[in-house]
Every structure is written in structure tokens, then in C-alpha cells.
């Protein structure tokens, strides 16, 4: 009974982690950008969904759609106002670009966080679930929303897989992550690849943020923790490896759930952090990392 409970809860939260981390790792793989405003963009999308649903009389579908749209807008804003100017700046030496991007996105994330707290307070917000209610799964009372969360996450990840492996622009994306110079030599414009990856990232982060707000709720105070969890998952899975991140998301999700149920919810994140330290010592490239 408890085992099944852990299995169900762990699956829902892990799927959400997987979705949140996929865009993050894909972006690093393709464009070398570690976007530290990740948590802020997720929360901004979620709060937008909450605000829009509020204005439109609580229609959860329109709210969710608006939230995802806002996530995309925020991703573009991050790229065009913060990341691209730094990447193109002649004043910044090439070898320092990554550090500047890290710092730039970190500060940008704090700006978004403060703006949310200023306009909508730091009180947590929740979005009405698309499917309310519970059902009895082999004796475990499971909210339908948890099931819907897992299904949506996997459907989106599946679509992404199709996009990357079965479409022309997806293949270019994959190629760019393996050898960016080779892609340019073949006559592809890297900047359009970057815009594609930021588009995918914005949609994924938006969906993850809105689902998180339906499942656990979001607050501008939680921005740092969200970025950190995506970061840990990506390091554990291997920087830039999407399949590594998916596996790592489940490792992290289940370790947290096991700890919360069997030891104490207060120590939820600690075993994962210990595991991360071990990974950095023993296998710094992560589970499926290439480098």
C-alpha cells in the first residue's frame, strides 16, 4: 500500500521534473547556455496562467494556454534582451561569454522574481487543475490531476522526441548539439537554430510551470529551488544529454519521494544533494554525459 503510494506520487513528480529539465538541458546541449532564469520563467508562466484564469472567470484551459504563451514570451525576452547581446558583444572575450551568460541570466531571473513579488505578492499561487477529482487506484486515492500531469508531461516529451528525430529542423538541432561548426559549414544559420531551441524551451518551461502550479503551487520565493532542481537533474544526467536528464529526473523524483515517506518530509532534498556530491567526485560527466 505504502509502496504503491510512493510509486504513484513519485511518478507524477518525476514526470514534472523531467519536463522541466528537458528544455533546460536541450538548450545547454545545443547552444551552450545555462539559463539560470529557468525557475523565474516557470513561475512567471504559472502566475500568468493564474492571472489570466482569474480575469476570464476561472476558465482553466484558457488560463493554462495563456500561461504557456507567456512562458514563450519570457523565453524570447530572455534570449533577445539578455543572452544574444552578451553572445554578440565584442567587449566580452569569447572564453568568458559563458560566465557572462550565467551572470546575466541569474540577474534577469532575480528581476523577474522581484517583479512577480511586487505585482502579485510572494504568496503562493495555484492554478485550477484541468481535471479535478480523485479516483481509487488499487486502494490508493489518487488525484486525477496527478495522472493528467504525468500524461501531459510524457505526451510533450514524446512530441519533442518526434520533432528532434523525425523532422528536418529537429535533425539540424541535433546536429548543432553535436558539432555546431559542422552545421554552419553545411550552410545552416546557427541563429535560426538558436531561435528554434529557445522556442522549444519556452513552451516546455511554460507547460512545466503551469502544471507545477496545478500540482503543488508556485511562489516567487520558490524560483531558486526550481532552478537548482533543474540544474541538479541536468548535472546528474550529464550536461546536454536529454535522455540522461529523463533518467536523472526519475532518480531525483523517487529519491525525494522515498525520503519524504520513509524518513521525513523535512529531509526530502538531502539524499539527492549527497548523491550529486558523489556524482561530481566519481563520475563528473554524469550518467549519460558525453564530456
Amino acid at each position: 500500500m505504502l509502496g504503491l503510494q510512493i510509486l504513484i506520487d513519485g511518478f507524477a513528480i518525476s514526470s514534472l521534473y523531467a519536463l522541466g529539465a528537458t528544455g533546460f538541458t536541450l538548450m545547454f546541449g545545443v547552444s551552450g547556455v545555462l539559463n539560470l532564469s529557468h525557475g523565474s520563467i516557470m513561475v512567471a508562466a504559472a502566475v500568468a496562467a493564474w492571472v489570466i484564469a482569474g480575469y476570464l472567470g476561472g476558465n482553466p484551459y484558457l488560463g493554462a494556454l495563456g500561461g504557456v504563451g507567456f512562458g514563450l514570451i519570457m523565453a524570447y525576452a530572455t534570449y533577445f534582451t539578455v543572452v544574444r547581446p552578451i553572445q554578440r558583444s565584442k567587449a566580452i572575450p569569447k572564453e568568458e561569454t559563458e560566465i557572462f551568460v550565467l551572470t546575466g541570466t541569474l540577474l534577469w531571473g532575480i528581476m523577474i522574481q522581484e517583479a512577480i513579488a511586487y505585482f502579485y505578492t510572494s504568496n503562493p499561487k495555484t492554478v485550477r487543475p484541468l481535471v479535478p477529482g480523485v479516483f481509487n487506484f488499487l486502494g490508493v486515492r489518487t488525484p486525477l490531476n496527478e495522472v493528467a500531469t504525468a500524461i501531459i508531461c510524457w505526451a510533450v516529451i514524446g512530441l519533442l522526441w518526434l520533432l528532434v528525430n523525425r523532422t528536418r529542423s529537429g535533425k539540424v538541432l541535433l546536429a548543432a548539439s553535436i558539432n555546431p561548426r559542422g552545421v554552419t559549414l553545411l550552410g545552416f544559420e546557427l541563429s535560426s537554430v538558436y531561435i528554434l531551441v529557445w522556442t522549444i524551451y519556452g513552451i516546455l518551461a511554460g507547460i512545466a510551470g503551469v502544471l507545477l502550479a496545478m500540482f503543488l503551487g508556485v511562489s516567487s520565493d520558490g524560483v531558486g529551488a526550481l532552478t537548482a532542481s533543474a540544474f541538479s537533474i541536468v548535472v546528474l544526467g550529464g550536461l546536454g544529454s536529454v535522455s540522461g536528464s529523463l533518467i536523472a529526473a526519475y532518480v531525483v523524483g523517487y529519491m525525494e519521494t522515498l525520503t519524504a515517506y520513509l524518513i521525513s518530509p523535512a529531509y526530502r532534498t538531502i539524499p539527492v544533494l549527497l548523491l550529486l556530491v558523489l556524482v561530481v567526485y566519481i563520475r563528473p560527466q554524469g550518467l549519460l554525459g558525453r564530456r
Binding site: D9, L216, A260, R268
Partner: peptide
């Protein structure tokens, strides 16, 4: 039960 103020998932607590 005393839980950390940054707890986000209360499922295990409510189940217990």
C-alpha cells in the same frame, strides 16, 4: 508533525 517551511509537496504528510 513538524515540517520544513519550504515544503511544497504535502502528499506524504497528509497520507501519514
Amino acid at each position: 508533525i513538524r515540517f520544513s517551511p519550504d515544503t511544497t509537496d504535502f502528499t506524504p504528510i497528509f497520507n501519514k
